[in-house]
């Protein structure tokens, strides 16, 4: 399965870089060439990757695109209006701090997605991931315990990501 995953990623990247130009015949040529190049690269690279896919991958992709991306983009837009408000009326933030939150997610990709989501949501910036702990800089520390902080910062993403990367 590792070979299939690597091959798919390489082929899709190749076709995306070629783009939608030209006629059907030209597209078929690019498809054949891309398949050959991806096959050769797969046998070289597959020993160094550590991701895999299984038969449920299309379902996960659909959930990711239609459930996760809208939540994420909405949070990103809110974050930008928050930044705009603070830029246009700059005052020293009230109580910034570095807090530690726990995550239940397994796997590197899930943690990477969670950390990136935390960075792009209002008022927070993920700094480091250590095992199951994520260290976050936030401009407004609301809770006292890690559980309250988790509820404020990452709970809604974790629920969705737990469905996707399970």
């Amino acid at each position: 399965m590792k070979y299939v995953a690597t091959f798919l990623v390489l082929l899709l990247s190749y076709l995306g870089l070629v783009g939608l130009v030209g006629s059907t015949e030209q597209f078929l040529q690019e498809l054949v060439l891309g398949t050959v190049v991806s096959l050769v690269l797969t046998f070289i690279l597959a020993n160094y990757v550590n991701y895999t896919i299984d038969y449920k991958f299309p379902v996960r992709l659909l959930v990711f695109v239609f459930a996760y991306i809208p939540v994420f983009v909405w949070a990103l837009i809110l974050a930008n209006f928050d930044v705009a408000r603070r830029v246009l009326s700059p005052k020293i933030p009230l109580n910034p701090g570095f807090v530690k939150i726990k995550t239940d997610l397994e796997g590197d990709f899930a943690k990477l997605t969670l950390a990136n989501s935390i960075t792009l949501t209002p008022g927070t910036l993920s700094i480091d991931v250590d095992g199951n702990d994520i260290y976050v800089h936030t401009v407004d520390v609301k809770g006292k315990t890690p559980e309250e902080n988790k509820k404020n910062i990452s709970a809604r993403f974790e629920k969705l990501l737990g469905v996707i990367f399970k």
């Binding site: 974050a79 933030p93 792009l120 910036l125 800089h137």
Partner: peptide, 24 residues
């Protein structure tokens, strides 16, 4: 907004936040 945020925020971590979110 990203450029302005980097210019006007008070410390390094706030500058990182403003710059990253706005430019993304």
């Amino acid at each position: 907004l990203g450029g302005l945020g980097v210019l006007r925020m008070p410390d390094v971590f706030n500058r990182i936040q403003a710059g990253t979110k706005a430019t993304t």
